[in-house]
């Protein structure tokens, strides 16, 4: 972990706010999951997903974990690192692996395809509760969405649950730091440049995020991975 971030985490992990938040989240998870066989965690491989996975598998080690591989928008090095982290962190989980197969970047947006896929999976496997690591702090849209509550009716038989809604970036990094959870290395590259509060792990070279300049950075820093799928 980067030295600047370590200093922040060292101080933040001692605060009573952080300790209470972790306890409260663990309790809310225990209350929410009534049927672990029909509950699933949505795992992207990013820092929030890792925290969520660690929190839940410490209580329910064999829970369903659904992972969506973004295909051409996720370089294979990163995808392999995600799977390695998952195996190390939660070896006993029931992993369901789904993938975006299209090689055309414009056929369906990479990130939006995720929501269609999760709907298909939950309907097929009769999942009643899906746990996702969204946080209020991430964007204004998410803040307004999560202010309505940590539970959201997604479809007829499926409810979404957001246990990390109130977590801040300091909480997330401190949790990873305390438990020595390994995370994708790309955070160490983009974190100091973009800021540890803004850095995200979603898709790479994705035209959907052109208006935010995401592909501009990927083409510069990860140019070696740009043409992996040609």
């Amino acid at each position: 972990m980067h030295l600047d971030l370590q200093i922040i985490c060292d101080g933040w992990k001692e605060t009573s706010h952080f300790r209470k938040l972790v306890k409260a989240t663990q309790q809310s998870i225990c209350h929410a999951i009534s049927d672990p066989a029909h509950t699933s965690i949505s795992f992207s491989g990013g820092k929030d997903s890792l925290v969520l996975l660690h929190l839940i598998t410490s209580i329910y080690p064999t829970i369903n974990v659904w992972h969506w591989d973004y295909g051409i928008f996720m370089p294979r090095e990163f995808e392999n690192a995600i799977m390695a982290n998952l195996k190390q962190l939660a070896p006993a989980v029931n992993l369901i692996y789904d993938k975006r197969y299209s090689k055309n970047p414009h056929s369906a947006s990479g990130y939006q395809g995720f929501y269609g896929a999760i709907n298909k999976y939950t309907t097929k496997k009769q999942i009643s509760l899906t746990i996702i690591g969204l946080r209020k702090e991430e964007s204004c849209a998410r803040k307004s969405r999560l202010t309505r509550g940590k539970f959201e009716k997604y479809s007829k038989n499926n409810t979404l649950f957001f246990p990390l809604a109130d977590w801040t970036w300091r909480d997330i990094w401190s949790y990873l730091y305390i438990h020595q959870i390994s995370y994708p290395e790309i955070y160490d590259l983009y974190g100091p440049l973009l800021g540890w509060e803004k850095v995200r792990f979603v898709t790479f070279f994705d035209p959907e995020f052109e208006f935010l300049g995401g592909p501009n950075l990927d083409k510069f820093f990860l140019y070696e991975m740009r043409n992996q799928y040609v």
């Binding site: 300049g213 995401g214 950075l217």
Partner: peptide, 9 residues
Amino acid sequence: LKNYDMKIV
């Protein structure tokens, strides 16, 4: 009139 906030190195 699309709004954007593009980062560039």
